[in-house]
Design a protein around this nucleic acid. Structure first.
Lengths: 242, 242
DNA sequence: TGATTTATCTTTACAGCGTCAAGATATCAT
DNA sequence: ATGATATCTTGACGCTGTAAAGATAAATCA
């Protein structure tokens, strides 16, 4: 009775969506929306469109601005549309993180493909690692924001696992040993932990602005990259010997 | 007009608060509430009580559960009470992070006070670093969740700066050089970045569960501590040479 | 002391959020 | 063609942060 509902959403949200009465003549074969047309009731490829919108929102408004409703607005659909495709916010965030891991894996594979002595290769990989994070700070942050992820999601679990495998193999742990769930020697494990901790720690500190004081006080001509270089040079990479 | 308000808060929130009509005989000198008494209108030391409540909520419900209203409920006050003391959620979170940095600084100072050769001291400090984070995972996470902090808050800025100073000095940068905002050599900066990245990276990976796979496959009798030990042993600590 | 100012806390209100349920619409299978 | 199913919208609810206004106690001052 005495309860007057108030509409709160979709104020100036999606353009050209209102005012289409039942029975509009939209056809639009799946996955092939003509540019410029008003959006049809069935989007066609909303799943991917939402993920792209999410990436835009994330890098534009930061993690705090990454909400289901903001993504829906960005994609021009109703606020509840994402639920159907991702279940909940954790689902969408997890899928976005999975995309990040896959992008990351591609970048790391490219960096590892060069022909160079082991030490040079290791440095190139480390630089590619940091470079990816700097190019996609929002996504990299997401990839390691465990409390907002569902690591059991197959796509995320797989992509993150591939990243880890790449890292391990670059430190000298054979792929065979990885797959078989075999035990690691303490030295092998330490090698993985050391390499990963060093580069991940540097990356997160850098992205979080925790190195700003250091960077500001560096000798002229230096920056985050040269600092990374110097840091890696000073961190001797020992081959995993017996 | 047709707008019926609905009460939504304080369902079974604070005990023994309702039913105290105007003119109750509470006196309670500031900062000295007798245990068991019903809470007075003026709490006396709500600022600290809220911070303690916040820490409880954080370690119990995680970062997602750390809300102004949850903290107010935990402290037994109205949902808007925290605003007066901290301005907004960022303010409260930042104060909590500042407390974390101060606790952390105490722990690190204790670890650095031992009498041992430099290498042993460095290892002891690193272990103390990780140990603090493991003992207070929620707070440690907060201390580095930059997007939720206001680093310009004096208390936080100061406490975080002290942490950094302690770190730098433990790597051989004189306090005098730090205070004077003097330039750092690339080697000095690399030394700081390397030590911090290594230990911070290990800590965050560990707390985020990213090392679980490694830990599970370690030889019998090993755990996160022995892995850290092995990692630090393999990371040669070079003295900051000229 | 008594009056007034100030600090502290509560109440009320509102918009944004995630999420569920129900309805509308388009595509697919038969 | 027709029924089933997938996709998307609408509406509602309780949660959140936060602003504004009211209530109460403490502090200050005459």
């Amino acid at each position: 009775m005495g309860r007057t509902a108030v509409r709160r959403d979709s104020k100036a949200a999606a353009p050209a969506r209102t005012g289409r009465k039942p029975g509009a003549p939209r056809k639009a074969k799946a996955g092939n929306i003509k540019a410029g047309e008003a959006s049809p009731y069935h989007h066609g490829d909303l799943h991917d469109a939402l993920l792209k919108a999410a990436e835009i929102v994330l890098e534009r408004d930061g993690l705090g601005g990454l909400t289901l409703r903001a993504v829906a607005r960005e994609a021009g659909v109703s606020h509840a549309a994402p639920t159907h495709h991702f279940g909940d916010l954790t689902g969408l965030v997890s899928e976005l993180a999975a995309i990040g891991f896959r992008q990351f894996n591609v970048a790391m594979a490219a960096a590892g493909a060069i022909d160079a002595p082991p030490l040079m290769k290791a440095m190139a990989r480390a630089k590619a690692y940091v470079a990816y994070a700097q190019a996609h700070p929002g996504i990299y942050g997401l990839m390691f924001r465990t409390e907002r992820l569902d690591m059991k999601r197959p796509s995320l679990h797989e992509a993150a696992g591939a990243s880890f495998a790449g890292l391990a193999s670059s430190v000298g742990v054979s792929l065979q040993q990885q797959m078989s769930d075999e035990a690691l020697s303490l030295e092998q494990a330490a090698g993985i932990a050391r390499a990963w901790s060093l580069v991940h720690g540097f990356t997160t500190l850098l992205l979080d602005g925790r190195l700003n004081d250091i960077l500001r006080r560096l000798p002229k001509g230096n920056n985050a990259e040269t600092l990374l270089d110097a840091m890696l040079r000073s961190a001797v990479v020992r081959p995993p010997g017996p």
